[in-house]
Write a protein that binds this DNA or RNA. Structure first.
Lengths: 165, 165
DNA sequence: TCAAAGTGGTTGCGTGTGCAACGAATAGCG
DNA sequence: CGCTATTCGTTGCACACGCAACCACTTTGA
């Protein structure tokens, strides 16, 4: 069995070292980060991951369609559909059909939804800062650049262009 | 509204820029990578993500308990339990109680399971190489180091020490 | 030595997810 | 124009997941 010496894997034999296998490491790190963040929006605000993403998207963009949110976040459209209808029932999100294309619905935060976002956003950012506190500012910039490259490539390699969660 | 200038977010006001929000980016990238990789092990081998992780772990370590696999991969123990019992039914994984501690069961690939691993591993590595092809070797090393730091920190911030998926 | 607390693993239950099929609306093309 | 192919969003269905309760076993400590 060869001893792997590079950062990832270049073994001549075909053995996957999980601790160095990029998709595995990405998923582990993403899960840890999601779980920790969920503590905030789930326990204190009763939001699911998809619901939080809808809120966050609308907090940033004001108007957006369900389709945009799904594609951008690599989630299935049915997931977003259900999250939106739950948020609508709670009075956090409103929808109005787009007159220019009546298949679409433009989503937006209600006042109540905006209040949730305002309460939530600083806590989310604080968590991000905690996580990033182990990296120097320069390292943070490098990380961002590397992730951009990888994400672009991963989108190109994606099975269809319809995202899943 | 402030214009964010750093790699991640240091806005004085509390607006989350999703495209720069680390937990979001991590999840998007991990989803893309998982979905693309799943093409291989799901369609061609009928394996779920947890099942693939069990196979990969046992391919690398030979003997391991369900608990180890779960903790390492930030998955719930029930997830692993079900994946293992499905793999056992298919004759890919065997289990034998650990005489030193009869609560545990040592898992291992059967010959058939090892054959699946042998067929699968090169394809998984090939996918990883495709993904990493957008990075220079030096960048790959940097990425690995940054992810290690982040993962360590994220484990420290994790809600409990019991992982979830 | 023995009761209580803790650990590895399983399973019933409720819920969330992806898929595929569908209705409504639009776009493309003969 | 009109007919087909697409696209946005919803929903029924089957399945997978997380949680909590549980069993078997081990560790702790009084």
């Amino acid at each position: 069995m060869a001893i792997a010496t590079s950062a990832f894997q270049d073994d001549p034999d075909a053995l996957v070292i999980l601790e160095r296998f990029l998709p595995y490491r990405l998923n582990v790190l993403a899960s840890l980060s999601s779980n920790a963040l969920a503590q905030i929006y789930a326990e204190r605000f009763g939001l699911s991951i998809p619901a939080w993403r809808v809120i966050a998207t609308l907090g940033q963009y004001e108007y957006r369609t369900a389709r945009d949110i799904a594609a951008h976040g690599v989630m299935h459209k049915s997931t977003i559909s259900r999250a939106v209808s739950a948020l609508e029932k709670r009075g956090l999100v409103g929808r109005r059909p787009n007159p220019a294309d009546r298949r679409e619905e433009l989503l937006a935060l209600t006042e109540k939804g905006a209040a949730v976002y305002t309460a939530l956003a600083p806590q989310a950012l604080a968590f991000e800062r905690q996580l990033l506190s182990v990296l120097e500012p320069g390292e943070q910039r490098v990380l961002a650049a590397l992730m951009d490259k990888l994400t672009t490539k991963a989108r190109a390699l994606a099975p269809d262009e319809e995202g899943r969660a």
